[in-house]
């Protein structure tokens, strides 16, 4: 099979899925002794040039890797943390040479910005917010949204970075009366923001005015859905959801992602498509990432599965490598690569 082959006419059985649709192009080995937790890609200015860099996060170290020739990588900066471990990397689109991280144990306790001194010789970090933080997301136009506090004093805050990543403006959004689990941008609508809540509602804000526009209840068959992507078309809102708490269905296989359509005017919604695992493949959604019309998920089986959301089915499976289960997966925002990581610090870069 060629690496370019991505079209499959019929729903394939798992043993006929083409592993060649994912071609390994590069590998990074993070030698840090602590457990690897996340990976991402971002633009960083190095010696006057913006380079597509990879960011890796272990529990107590976040590292920036710059590309060398022939798909080699060189670690150029490391930020160290001593008290609170890193939970996730938060890339802020449209900001160069700055990345945010969420730190905490089970829940986020701090959000920090990581950058370098103007001469590029030393790593810097600054605390952006602290407290009982529930969700955080980087948004277009150099913005970062986070929610913190409990039900009665929940605060939803937008922080806007200056072009150089420096001084910040803050704005509050109207909080919904239920805990927010995740945020999602609406593709092509920079002033719209979605949130998913613990009560299985999707809320929508106007970022310009801070108004909470609507609370929309979605299908109760899956609890605590997470929204990975949203777009508006012909007056309807389409959302790609995952169901981390869905029970495995032996007959049908576990639905890993779901496309749902919502009419924001009436708050009525209906399922459009379920993205299931191929027959014979077991596992539930652990974590995943959606970019354009491609969705990738790490399954409880330790395998990574990729779906083409337009074709409607799984197009590639990536079983554990060297007997090691996959722990996290991200689409690179700087190109069309898939970044797959294992707990021991191995990061693999695949061309899809």
């Amino acid at each position: 099979h060629s690496a370019e082959q991505t079209e499959i006419a019929e729903v394939p059985a798992w043993d006929s899925l083409n592993p060649g649709t994912l071609q390994l192009v590069s590998k990074l080995k993070n030698p840090s002794g602590s457990c690897s937790v996340d990976v991402s890609a971002t633009w960083w200015e190095i010696a006057g040039f913006k380079e597509p860099c990879v960011i890796t996060a272990c529990e107590y170290v976040v590292s920036l890797w710059k590309p060398l020739d022939a798909w080699q990588w060189e670690k150029i900066y490391s930020w160290h943390f001593t008290e609170v471990p890193v939970l996730q990397i938060v890339v802020v689109p449209d900001v160069c040479s700055l990345v945010c991280v969420a730190l905490g144990n089970l829940e986020i306790r701090e959000i920090r910005a990581l950058f370098c001194s103007p001469d590029g010789k030393s790593e810097k970090q600054v605390l952006l917010s602290s407290g009982n933080i529930k969700a955080v997301l980087g948004l277009a136009k150099r913005r970062l949204v986070s929610s913190s506090g409990t039900l009665c004093d929940q605060q939803v805050e937008i922080m806007t970075f200056a072009e150089d990543g420096g001084s910040k403006e803050k704005q509050l959004l109207m909080p919904p009366e239920e805990t927010i689990l995740t945020f999602a941008e609406v593709q092509g609508m920079q002033e719209a923001l979605l949130g998913t809540t613990i009560m299985n509602n999707i809320v929508i804000w106007n970022l310009k005015t801070g108004q909470l526009l609507k609370k929309m209840h979605i299908d109760d068959s899956y609890q605590a859905s997470v929204c990975h992507k949203a777009y508006s078309e012909m007056g309807l809102l389409f959302v790609v959801l995952s169901h981390p708490r869905a029970k495995e269905n032996e007959l049908l296989g576990s639905p890993v992602f779901q496309l749902t359509v919502i009419n924001p005017k009436t708050a009525l919604s209906t399922g459009v498509m379920l993205y299931r695992l191929p027959h014979g493949q077991a596992g539930r959604f652990l974590e995943g990432d959606v970019k354009d019309h491609f969705a990738a998920a790490v399954l409880t089986s330790g395998t990574i599965a990729v779906w083409d959301l337009l074709l409607g089915h799984c197009t590639a499976l990536l079983p554990p490598v060297s007997g090691q289960s996959w722990s996290f997966v991200k689409w690179s925002g700087t190109d069309s690569h898939l970044l797959a990581g294992q707990k021991d610090g191995n990061i693999f870069v695949y061309r899809y």
Binding site: G235, K265, T270
Partner: peptide, 23 residues
């Protein structure tokens, strides 16, 4: 899915909801 099940659709839903919602 059937569009009719979702009720009346508006292409300007974002602007309309913004004008209706409390600020």
């Amino acid at each position: 899915c059937n569009k009719a099940d979702l009720g009346p659709i508006s292409l300007n839903w974002f602007e309309e909801l913004s004008s209706e919602a409390p600020s």
